[in-house]
Design a protein around this nucleic acid. Structure first.
Lengths: 233, 233
DNA sequence: TGACTCCTAGAGTAATTACTCTAAAAATCA
DNA sequence: TGATTTTTAGAGTAATTACTCTAGGAGTCA
């Protein structure tokens, strides 16, 4: 039996992801839960604290994943690992979508977020470093940093990007899944030129695994059948 | 003498970029211009049409740049070219920042945006294709597409990303400039492994050109001096 | 001068929305 | 059981904000 506080967070998250935080009012959240606004405000001082609490869950979630001991690291394992990361980020996708507004509205949150990103990048560098030590990727330090930053850009923007191009996706779970896989595929594209040894062998297999298989997810390149541009000028 | 309509667009753009569209009210725009709200609504039916008009300017701007005939394409020229693109996008950075909300609120705009991205990607593929024909980059078709998508992700997300990590940047023109150069640098990192011939020769020179030179723009990796994390829990 | 159109002012409104307040149910504890 | 604390309801409010409406200036053309 989850507490009211938890239930508020869960519904808020669902609504935020689906509608965008801006379009979800506190009254709306309360209504969706079947509780009163007053009750909601008993548990959360204001809307911002809900967002902040969700960020806390998100960042803890992600950092925990990043801290997890890896054992010997292969590229295949690493890619599955990234899949988990992206899935976590996808769960809280509203956050990166409206990020700028949240940070603008709450300086304390901005500071937390900054620190969070720093840790993520540090930890990411360690992981890529291990891949390099294992001879799986061949990069110099500079390339490693460039790769890391680009990976983070991709991961943190992917959900928003997808949502911008396929607003309908929010409604369709299967589509979500497929679009997330495309995200992984793009990360593989990022790394591909640096891959060596074991990774090179598995490259095609992995690409095939994450490539947009069904026509529905040809989102960015390729013209999606059955989704003609609606509306016009 | 610019018309009132133009002036409204210009001030709106400036305010949107600085404060975020969500934090800029129509009254606020009118006040900044020294005109009455009524006057503003004489020229624009509602706030959304201002955003839509700005998108029109933005997309025309970018598409014009993309259509411009190139002549023989070298990697150096192409990079300067991308610098121009990114500068244009930077000018209208509020748009990609609050993109999801705009598209959610205005389906017609969403359709326009979708078509816009398609053209951008097509044209981008042509450019990369020319680079390949000239022997400047060595990629197969699949890699080309992957590269293109990643370039677009980077370009369209960079402003928002930077803004999230350095909210103060909006106030500082010199910093803006420096952060934008970092964006180009990241694109170079994206392309680096594929570069051949002329491009390889100029690689270090170009990297040095766009690398974060001053300490202030070590934004993502590297700990910014003089910008200690403010606030905490 | 007068008529007509374009532009502007600014007070005002309707609706939204984050948030408050009081009081009562429910749970906990003596 | 009664006392105390936690949780809930729900009506209500203050503030914001996108937008309207009327009336009047300013330019243009006869």
């Amino acid at each position: 039996m989850t507490s009211t506080k938890e239930r508020i967070l869960n519904t808020s998250l669902a609504l935020f992801n689906r509608e965008g935080e801006r379009n979800v009012t506190t009254n709306h959240i309360a209504e969706a839960l079947g509780i009163s606004p007053g009750n909601l405000y008993y548990h959360f001082r204001n809307k911002g604290t809900i967002v902040a609490a969700l960020f806390e869950r998100y960042s803890q979630n992600l950092l925990a994943l990043l801290e997890a001991p890896q054992g010997p690291l292969t590229w295949t394992i690493k890619t599955h690992y990234f899949e988990g990361l992206l899935a976590s980020m996808w769960q809280y996708r509203f956050f990166h979508r409206d990020l700028t507004h949240f940070l603008h509205a709450d300086p304390a949150l901005a500071a937390r977020y900054q620190a969070f990103v720093e840790v993520v990048l540090e930890r990411g560098l360690v992981i890529y470093g291990e891949l390099r030590s294992s001879g799986i990727i061949a990069v110099d330090d500079e390339q490693l940093q460039g790769l890391m930053v680009n990976t983070w850009v991709l991961m943190s923007s992917w959900a928003a990007l997808v949502h911008g191009l396929r607003p309908d996706a929010a409604a369709d779970e299967a589509l979500d899944e497929s679009l997330m896989r495309h995200g992984i595929y793009q990360i593989i594209c990022l790394e591909e030129p640096f891959l060596r040894g074991e990774a090179r062998e598995h490259l095609e297999e992995m690409k095939a695994r994450y490539r947009a298989v069904d026509t529905t997810s040809a989102l960015l390149l390729g013209h999606v059948p059955g989704l003609d541009r609606t509306g016009s000028e």
